[in-house]
């Protein structure tokens, strides 16, 4: 147990350092951005009509006149006190903006994550078991095709087919446009989440399926599968009893590590579907020079990704008998 705690402690320290690094990099990128916050957010025409005092006020609001280092340190000390600041664009506390966006993205991300994980595992196992035969070729072909397709392009394609041509599903947003928030049903939300979730799942599957396939092939060529065969175990029992068991561990690790890919993918996909989620907010914040919001979003998503990896590591210890028994003894 002590060993496990130490392990977790070390990971948490690393996480803190990582988050610090991520925030610094985001900040530097933002500083290096060629976009002038006043021009993008207020507009050239409006600026022309303003008095110098008004412009100075705006510059102060967007933080143009503060030296970068002071700005960053100010942000950091506030964050350490638990205050993520106020979003410049939404004029709301960053935390509440992220909170709202996360809630609407959450089910989208979760369903895409679960679907791609389960489907990817199944496809990988099947492809590995049928190595070289048509199910394998089909699955591999699909994976290579999908991996070389940009997710936003796929999003547009799905949009064209299901929303424009067939008209089965809404074109965008997370709720019907112009509807009273109170009148929106869960079914409405679901219908709006289907296409983005589908896009994310379809692209997420490829990586997991290909990795699982490799691992499955290794397992099927292993000594212990040979021995299981020699002892008369049927091919199906070998795949289910030995294959799945030995593939599950690496697949699980991969699945938790793939959180980052799903979140990364959601940025583009939400943009295409105008889905008001975290990813879309990140794009808006980035383009609109909303520094507090962007920093907040990066830190929160980095923390989620890191938590995913941490869970993977901890699960490994719980599931792998070698680590589990070794730790309880040592």
């Amino acid at each position: 147990m002590k060993h496990r705690l130490q392990f977790t402690g070390k990971k948490l320290i690393r996480m803190a350092l990582l988050l610090l690094g991520v925030s610094i990099v985001t900040f530097l990128l933002m500083c290096a951005s060629p976009l002038d916050p006043l021009q993008t957010n207020v507009g050239q025409a409006a600026l022309g009509t303003m008095s110098p005092e008004q412009i100075a006020k705006l510059e102060a609001y967007w933080g143009v006149d503060t030296p970068p280092l002071t700005r960053y340190l100010g942000w950091l000390s506030d964050v350490l006190k638990g205050d993520f600041g106020t979003s410049l664009l939404y004029r709301q506390p960053v935390i509440s903006v992220i909170g709202q966006r996360l809630v609407s993205s959450f089910w989208l991300l979760l369903s895409a994550w679960v679907i791609s994980g389960v489907l990817g595992l199944a496809m990988g196992v099947i492809a590995g078991a049928f190595r070289g035969r048509w199910p394998d070729r089909l699955i591999r072909g699909y994976c290579f095709l999908i991996s070389s397709t940009p997710s936003f392009w796929l999003a547009i394609l799905l949009l064209l087919i299901f929303a424009v041509w067939l008209g089965w599903l809404p074109i965008g947003l997370s709720v019907p446009a112009g509807m009273d928030a109170a009148a929106v049903t869960a079914a409405d939300r679901l219908r709006h989440a289907i296409l983005p979730a589908l896009t994310l799942s379809i692209t997420g599957v490829a990586n997991i399926a290909l990795h699982t396939r490799e691992k499955m092939i290794d397992v099927l060529e292993s000594d212990y599968v040979l021995f299981a065969r020699a002892r008369g175990e049927s091919e199906i029992s070998i795949i289910l009893r030995h294959g799945l068991r030995n593939v599950a561990l690496p697949a699980l690790t991969l699945q938790f590590a793939s959180v980052s890919e799903i979140i990364g993918g959601s940025v583009l996909v939400e943009q295409v579907f105008s889905y008001p989620g975290l990813g879309q907010a990140a794009v808006t914040a980035g383009l609109g020079s909303d520094l507090p919001l962007l920093l907040g979003i990066t830190v929160v998503t980095a923390a989620i990704v890191f938590a995913g990896n941490l869970i993977a590591d901890l699960l490994y210890g719980v599931i792998d008998p070698k680590i589990r028994k070794g730790a309880s003894r040592g």
Partner: peptide, 20 residues
């Protein structure tokens, strides 16, 4: 017949599933 009348006795522990 394998596993019923014909048996293989392999070299070593790598022939056992490490997770079972």
């Amino acid at each position: 017949l394998r596993g019923k009348e014909i048996f293989l006795i392999p070299q070593g522990v790598t022939y056992l599933d490490p997770l079972m």
